[in-house]
Design a protein around this nucleic acid. Structure first.
Lengths: 196, 196
DNA sequence: GCTATTGACATACGACTTGTATGTAAATAG
DNA sequence: CTATTTACATACAAGTCGTATGTCAATAGC
């Protein structure tokens, strides 16, 4: 078993590169990260990088994909713990706000992501968090719990509100006390969608 | 009057550089814009650029400042045409959504801006659109028209919702029909802040 | 009105970076 | 056991940014 097959070696290489890139991108940002440094940090060269990911953006996209999957997984877990679709939607939004406090999420997904990869809605990872929100909104609309609002529009607005709230909380003076206020405001706003 | 004073020459140089940069950044984005091309397009060199703006980010910041001021001015004009503070707030948000349809605003302010300059809340231009929203929310809160929500949090959420809605509308298949839906959804969400 | 100095740029230079083209050694195929 | 493909490393060319230096016109001082 000491003998490694080629596929195993490549997977290992990819994992190492993604991990190194994730740390570097989070700390220095996309533009200020050198691929020479990034690869050397795990004992490789840019040759491995271009072979596995095509270019710098390709590696960045892989990192975003990984983080995005983790976020969606966490949001889903929290939403499933709720007992109504409505409370699940609120929980998702609040979870999103919390997760965006993570410096890695902020810098890589929220700040550099759009500039490097374009609008999140067109990412291959499809911004899974948005997908979850859309599903919940669609179900609530069908059940007549929400006012006759466009599902896509409402999902976008809810996610956007949560996202920006998170960015603000993360960069304000006192995140600990502002987080609950932001989440309160989010629930209040979302309540505007409910039928009277 | 053919004789130009030095201050006039500098102002003219700055205007030319900002105009050229605005076009280049909007079309190719910050990262893919060369300062050599940018300056040569108006008959200058990078020397003028570094002398007047310090570095590439400095010029970018000046462009953002200009666009931001234009947006705030327009939003203010629309808001003042309304007869209540509440409708003015809604009008501002809807105006924001519309303005974000402009490719220049999208690429420079919304996409590249945060990546290059960091969180908009910390920009020198202070994101004037947000300021207007905050002022309106504060007034409505004081008048008891809104539920007891944190002013800063609510302002952030409203602006974030509008912003993301705009990004979505701008990149969707049929912006013309989606714009009113997004604005409807925005008004509905904002209604969640009103006392019952 | 003449010189000295400052200001507004242009030019030249060095240090990096990215992407590609080529080389190479190991793993697989036949 | 040879041939070929794979998974990288190395070498190279092009382009970019920031700075250091040069230059000429505009102002200041006497």
């Amino acid at each position: 078993m000491a003998r490694r097959t080629r596929a195993e070696m490549m997977d290992d290489t990819r994992r190492k590169l993604i991990a190194s890139a994730r740390a570097a991108f989070a700390e220095k940002g996309f533009a200020d990260t050198s691929m020479d440094d990034l690869t050397a940090a795990v004992g490789l060269t840019r040759g491995a990088l271009y072979h596995n990911f095509g270019d710098k953006k390709g590696l960045f996209a892989a990192v975003v994909e990984q983080i995005d999957a983790e976020m969606a997984s966490r949001a889903r877990a929290l939403a499933e713990a709720e007992d109504t679709v409505w409370s699940a939607l609120l929980a998702e939004g609040c979870a999103y706000i919390e997760m965006a406090l993570d410096p890695e999420v902020q810098r890589i997904v929220l700040r550099d992501g759009p500039a490097v990869l374009g609008d999140p809605a067109h990412w291959p990872s499809q911004n899974r968090c948005l997908d979850a929100t859309r599903a919940a909104v669609a179900e609530l609309r069908a059940a007549g719990i929400l006012k006759p609002v466009d599902v896509e529009a409402a999902s976008r607005l809810l996610n956007g509100a949560a996202l920006n709230a998170a960015l603000w909380v993360a960069t304000c003076d006192d995140p600990a006390t502002m987080l609950p206020k932001a989440q309160d405001a989010f629930r209040m706003l979302a309540g505007g969608l409910l039928v009277d």
